[in-house]
C-alpha cells in the first residue's frame, strides 16, 4: 500500500498518521507538501488533523485552495482513497469533496476524550473489516465538529449509505446525550457517493499503536488493507 500524508501549515497530527501508516501498518508512506501538485502512484492519501492556516475564516477554508487540493480532487475523481481526519474532514467538506459542513460544537467547548461511535456500514473501503453496528471507542479532539447538512442532503446520504459513523453510547445506542458536539443525526463520519473519500471527526490514528491506550482505530487501517 502506497500512501501519502498531506502537510498543511498548521497540521499537527501529520506525524501521528505517518507513524501509524509507516511503522504500525508497515506501508510505504511519504509526506505530501501542500504545495505539491502530483499524487501519482499513491493508493491512499490522508489529510491529517490540526489547524491548517490557523483555522482562519473557517476551519479548512483556506487549505482547500492549496495547490495540492487540485491534485486531491483529481485523485479522488479517479477513485483514489482519501481519508480526512478531523481538520482533514473539514478541508474535504470545504473543498466540496464531501457533503455538509462542520460548525462550532454546540457546547462552544473544545472536546478531548474517548467517544463511542457505531459503524453504520461496512460497505466502504474504510470499514470493510468492521461489522455493521460494531461500536468503536475512538479519541475525539475538536472545537468544530458539529456536522450540519440540510434535511434533503441527509436523506440523500442515508439513501446512498454514505453515513459511516454515528456517535453513540457504549452499547451502541444513538442518543442525544451521547452526541458530544450537536452533529445532525449524531453523524461522526461520512463517505462520498463513490465511497472512496471518507471524513471523520474522531482520530483513528491515536488509537492504533499498541503502545498507547485504545486499539479500535486500527480497524479502519486494517479495513483499507482488507479491501485492497
Amino acid at each position: 500500500m502506497k500512501c501519502g500524508v498531506v502537510v498543511f501549515p498548521g497540521s499537527n497530527c501529520d506525524h501521528d498518521c505517518y507513524h501509524i501508516l509507516k511503522h504500525i501498518m508497515g506501508w510505504d508512506a511519504k509526506w505530501v507538501w501542500h504545495k505539491d501538485e502530483s499524487l501519482d502512484g499513491l493508493d491512499l492519501l490522508v489529510l491529517p488533523g490540526g489547524f491548517s492556516y490557523g483555522d482562519y475564516l473557517r476551519a479548512g477554508s483556506i487549505a482547500c485552495f492549496s495547490p495540492i487540493m487540485k491534485a486531491v480532487s483529481g485523485f479522488a475523481g479517479r477513485g483514489g482513497r482519501v481519508l480526512g481526519i478531523c481538520n482533514g474532514f473539514q478541508v474535504l467538506t470545504e473543498a466540496g469533496l464531501l457533503p455538509g459542513a462542520l460548525m462550532r460544537n454546540r457546547s462552544q467547548r473544545f472536546l478531548c476524550k474517548f467517544q463511542s461511535v457505531r459503524v453504520e456500514t461496512s460497505a466502504t473501503p474504510f470499514t470493510a473489516d468492521c461489522a455493521e453496528g460494531e461500536v468503536l471507542s475512538l479519541p475525539i479532539a475538536h472545537a468544530d465538529g458539529n456536522f450540519y447538512a440540510d434535511a434533503d442532503t441527509i436523506k440523500q446520504m442515508e439513501d446512498q449509505d454514505q453515513i459511516v459513523l454515528r456517535y453513540c453510547n457504549a452499547s451502541g445506542e444513538v442518543t442525544d446525550a451521547d452526541n458530544p458536539n450537536g452533529s445532525a443525526g449524531s453523524i461522526a463520519g461520512v463517505v462520498n457517493a463513490g465511497k472512496n473519500v471518507m471524513g471523520l471527526m474522531p482520530h483513528p490514528e491515536r488509537a492504533a499503536d499498541p503502545a498507547l491506550p485504545g486499539s479500535d482505530g486500527r480497524k479502519l487501517f486494517d479495513s483499507l488493507l482488507a479491501f485492497a
Partner: peptide, 8 residues
C-alpha cells in the same frame, strides 16, 4: 468561493 460557506 471563499468568504461564506453557503452550506451553512
Amino acid at each position: 468561493r471563499l468568504l461564506a460557506n453557503t452550506v451553512i
